[in-house]
Simulated scan of single mutants.
Amino acid sequence: MDNIITFEDFTKVDLRVGTITDVADFPKARNPAYQLTIDFGDLGVKKSSAQITTLYKKEDLLNRQIIAIVNFPTKQIANFMSECLVMGVVKEKDVYLLHPETKVKNGSQVS
Rank of each mutant, 00 (worst) to 15 (best):
F7K: 03
E8K: 13
E8R: 10
D9R: 06
K12L: 12
V13C: 12
V13R: 07
R16W: 05
T21L: 04
D22I: 00
V23P: 06
A24L: 13
P27F: 05
R30A: 13
R30N: 15
N31T: 13
P32C: 09
A33Y: 09
Q35K: 15
I38Q: 01
G41Y: 09
G44F: 11
V45P: 07
K46H: 05
K46D: 01
A50S: 12
T53I: 05
L55W: 01
K58M: 11
K58W: 04
K58S: 12
D60A: 13
L62C: 09
R64C: 01
I66P: 01
I67V: 15
A68C: 05
I69P: 02
F72Q: 14
F72M: 15
F72P: 02
F72W: 13
K75T: 09
I77Y: 08
M81P: 02
M81C: 05
M81Y: 10
E83R: 05
L85K: 08
M87R: 02
M87S: 06
V89N: 01
V89C: 03
D94E: 14
Y96V: 08
L97F: 03
H99A: 04
P100W: 08
E101A: 12
T102R: 10
K105F: 02
K105W: 00
K105V: 12
N106P: 08
N106A: 11
N106V: 07
G107P: 06
G107A: 12
G107R: 05
S108F: 09
S108K: 13
Q109L: 10
V110D: 04
S111D: 13
